[in-house]
């Protein structure tokens, strides 16, 4: 897992680090290269979207929607500059992206970027609670998976296997059936209150919990008979102290790295969960816009999600290196 993050960063690493430059400079250069690379990818993604919309038949028809009158079609065509050559359109599109101008929503008439950004905070809340839960539950589960008795290990292991095999949307429906339909404890859908956050978080976190647990168990197994643990035990530290103070911290970098790498999986999951629970985040906004054929909003949502992923990757990579110097050393 760590390898994923480390590998995902560094075109500069293959070149020999120039002599005389400090670690600071190298780090800045590496982060810069990584940012540029990811932003270029983002641009590529938007470009792909641009050409797909243009090439799949009449874009004005797509953009204006199936119920548009011929006059409306003409207006859209002129408004978008669709009578110009494709490359000129593409240049204009790139200019708009750089100026963060994604046009206005076909339906609400509001700024597409504003619509996408407005939906982002709710998704961030969901992602943060999911990460907290997956760590808070995953680490103890991992300890049980490694240190528990035979029965505990079997039970936890089986639940983790199940947790990884049940798709998020199936799990979400199961939760709705159980807690909303049968027990009536929680609202089945909506957003804004704490109660509406519980089931989406559970649905999204389950897979991450299982991954965290497996990772923690694997790390614990790896350090099991290392000298420093024996030394700690010989000094008179309790079993519990040896586990929590000495053994477990070894797993933290891997867990943290997984959280960064998995941000893209988590966002994919969040899209499904938000639609299922009618939770007003950017994922639901995206799917709604797709069904409404509101392409400016679709492009803005993809852009915002992409930028968010880039930021998490770049910042996360920096944090990981601060957290675990071994990563930086391994690549140097």
């Amino acid at each position: 897992m760590t390898e994923g993050v480390v590998a995902s960063v560094d075109p500069g690493a293959t070149a020999p680090p120039s002599a005389g430059r400090g670690r600071r400079g190298r780090r800045a250069r590496r982060l810069g290269a990584m940012t540029v690379r990811l932003l270029l990818t983002l641009l590529g993604l938007l470009t792909l979207l641009f050409f797909l919309v243009r090439l799949s038949g009449d874009p004005a028809g797509v953009l204006a929607g199936p119920s548009a009158t011929p006059q409306q079609l003409e207006a859209v065509r002129a408004g978008l500059g669709l009578d110009e050559p494709l490359l000129a359109q593409y240049a204009a599109f790139l200019g708009d992206v750089v100026r963060l101008d994604f046009g206005t929503s076909v339906f609400s008439g509001e700024s597409a970027l504003g619509t996408a950004l407005g939906a982002l905070p709710a998704t961030l809340v969901l992602l943060v609670t999911t990460m907290l839960v997956s760590v808070a539950v995953g680490i103890p589960c991992g300890v049980l998976l490694d240190r528990g008795g035979r029965v505990t290990r079997a039970v936890v292991g089986t639940s983790m296997t199940l947790a990884q095999a049940v798709p998020t949307f199936v799990l979400g429906i199961l939760l709705i059936y159980l807690f909303a339909v049968r027990l009536g404890w929680l609202p089945a859908f909506g957003s804004g209150t704490a109660a509406t956050l519980v089931m989406p978080t559970l649905a999204l976190a389950t897979f991450a919990i299982a991954r965290t647990a497996r990772m923690v168990a694997a790390e614990l197994e790896q350090v099991e008979d290392q000298d420093f643990l024996r030394t700690a035990a010989a000094k008179g530290a309790s079993t519990r102290r040896v586990l929590w103070r000495h053994a477990l911290p070894n797993a933290f970098p891997a867990v943290a790295a997984a959280l960064v790498v998995e941000i893209s999986y988590l966002i994919s999951g969040a899209v499904v969960v938000e639609v299922l629970f009618a939770y007003d985040g950017i994922g639901k906004e995206l799917v709604d816009a797709i069904f409404a054929r509101d392409y400016p909003v679709v492009q803005a949502c993809v852009f915002v999600i992409g930028v968010f992923v880039v930021v998490v990757n770049v910042v996360g990579d920096g944090l990981l290196r601060a957290l675990d110097p071994r990563i930086a050393r391994a690549r140097a």
Binding site: V9, T41, L45, S56, V62, S264, I267, S268, L286, G306
Partner: peptide
Amino acid sequence: DRVIMAGADIWLAFPFLVIALAAVAVV
């Protein structure tokens, strides 16, 4: 090697479902 692996890393960094949704919506 460098091109392919860089492509793989970048591809993994983006949420696939979001890309797939956008693509399916269009094609």
